[in-house]
Simulated scan of single mutants.
Amino acid sequence: MARPKSEEKRLHLMLAAAEAVAERGVGAPTALIAKLAGVAEGTLFRYFPTKEALLNETYLYICELGWASANESFDLSRPLIERARHLWDMHVDWCLANPVWDRALSQLAVTEILTKETRAAEAAMFPDVGLMEQVSAGEVLAGHPTEYADALFLAVANATIEFARREPERVEAYKASGFAAFRRMFLD
């Protein structure tokens, strides 16, 4: 008789997947993920039917963690640019505080492994539909897939985060400059 699945073990497998993806990209083998989780590779497949399922669930879990911190102080009544700046700052701060999650998120967000269902679930988590509609309607993204928007956003965010890590005393200046670039690309 199979042992019941544990939510703790499931979470531990997703944490290990994030670590492996952060270290080796989406090509990280399931054997490495299982090793990082301290389980047999067969155990991984008891919880997730495929590596793709594991990576999709891991991506959504990382998104949940990231947006949870932003949602705590998010105020939809503020003007659009203020809301965008707040979300930008929260994203950069969260990524700086969680480098493994950040690297895994950056790898997974631009991969074809993510399903349409995962992308839809991610979009549903985003705390500001109005901001997303504004960005999607702009000339930069007109007619392009969501993945392209993710890649452009991540390029600016990752540059901001990388330089903020190199020079922590300039975090606020890099956040301001990165947001100015984001705003010009998507909101002006």
Rank of each mutant, 00 (worst) to 15 (best):
D102N: 14
R24F: 10
N98T: 14
A124H: 05
R3V: 07
D128W: 08
K5I: 08
D93Q: 07
S136M: 13
F48H: 07
H86M: 11
R46W: 07
A17P: 05
A34I: 10
W67Q: 14
E52A: 15
G25Y: 06
Q134M: 12
F126T: 01
S69M: 05
A2I: 12
S106T: 14
L141Y: 01
L36F: 12
P127M: 02
R10F: 03
S136Y: 02
N71Q: 14
C63F: 10
A180T: 04
A123Q: 10
L54R: 09
D102H: 15
K116W: 00
P49Y: 00
T50H: 04
F48M: 01
A34T: 11
A34D: 12
F179C: 04
L32E: 02
Y59L: 04
Y59M: 14
P99Y: 09
K5C: 00
V171F: 06
F182V: 02
C95G: 12
N158H: 13
A159M: 14
A2K: 14
L105P: 05
G143E: 10
V135L: 11
G178W: 13
F48A: 05
I161S: 00
L131K: 04
C63M: 10
A28G: 08
P127Y: 08
L55C: 04
R165D: 08
T58S: 05
K35T: 14
L154M: 13
T50P: 13
A173L: 13
A173F: 11
A149R: 12
L154P: 09
R3N: 03
E52F: 03
R119N: 15
W88S: 05
A18K: 12
P29M: 07
G42S: 15
M185Y: 09
A53F: 04
A104L: 05
R10Q: 09
K175V: 08
A109R: 12
H144P: 02
W67T: 02
R119G: 10
N71G: 09
V129F: 03
V156S: 00
A17T: 07
E72S: 06
F153Y: 15
G38I: 09
D75S: 03
G178A: 13
E122A: 02
A155V: 01
A176C: 01
A151G: 10
M1I: 11
E112I: 06
E52H: 09
Q134C: 00
L96V: 12
S77H: 13
V39H: 10
